[in-house]
Amino acid sequence: MKSSASHALPCVAGIGLRAPHYREVLQQLPGIGWVEVHSENFFGGGAPLHTLLRVREHYPVSLHGVGMGLASTGPLDPQHLSALARLCDAINPAAVSEHLCWNSSEGTVINDLLPFPYTQAALSYVAARVEQVQEKIGRRLLVENLSSYLSFAHSEMSEGEFLAELSRRTGCGILFDINNLYVNARNLGVDAGAFIRNVPAEAVAEYHLAGYSERAGINEGESCLVDTHNNPVYPEVWRLYEDALRHIGVRPTLIEWDADIPALPVLLAEAAQAQSRMERCCECVG
């Protein structure tokens, strides 16, 4: 029997594994700590699942969902939920995550990650749905903070406070996307320092890093940062990451790159940059 990779996400850097790199990764088996994939790409059998099972023989795998819609108004899609549960059983992932977002209303699905007002009522609602997912998959869920391009006047708390309370109520972990926080600081004036200081460190189970892009607005002089995952991590985001490492601690850290996907060595070099920051931080703490 082949030994399978260890169950917990190791506290090192990993990469988002996408289709253009499957073959190369399986042939070369580069020295990366773990990989993360988008869950929905493996809902079914055939080549996708069998490829992921081979990857799983060599690396811990994190399943990252983009389609559950934890805050959508309709019931959670039972087919989607069952598919995720089956995938978890097949892969025995080291982590399972979803986003703090909604994606459907009145039967129309918007296949994106959409923000909502952070109210007490929304908190109770989303908490019940996080519990429903955790019960179905039999595992703790990690919930990720979002990149947003707008906010709501009647929010009663910050996104960070919402996530902290969600974690307290449901036991879910927090997937802290540093790039998303930076995008929100620039787009919405969110206080990134307060987020890092106030998020419950023990609940943070993983970091994400990625590159945004800046888009011109529809009026002259406007601009907006868009979470495109198509660039190297920006220096400002690395700095925010170092702040997080100091205040929250070292956690498994993922480099996400989903569009204009570069050659594998470029991705591995980004992961190595994250790894060296993690190690430097360990030294300064130790």
Binding site: S105, T108, P117, S151, A153, L188, G217, N219, E222
Partner: peptide
């Protein structure tokens, strides 16, 4: 709130009034 937000994205309807209108460098329309 979500149905109005959804219709603004999908159909181009006027976004709901609960959405904040002032951001550092962009508008709700953007």
């Amino acid at each position: 709130i979500l149905p109005g937000f959804s219709r603004a994205i999908v159909r181009g309807d006027e976004p709901p009034g609960q959405i904040n209108s002032a951001y550092p460098k962009h508008t709700v329309s953007t």
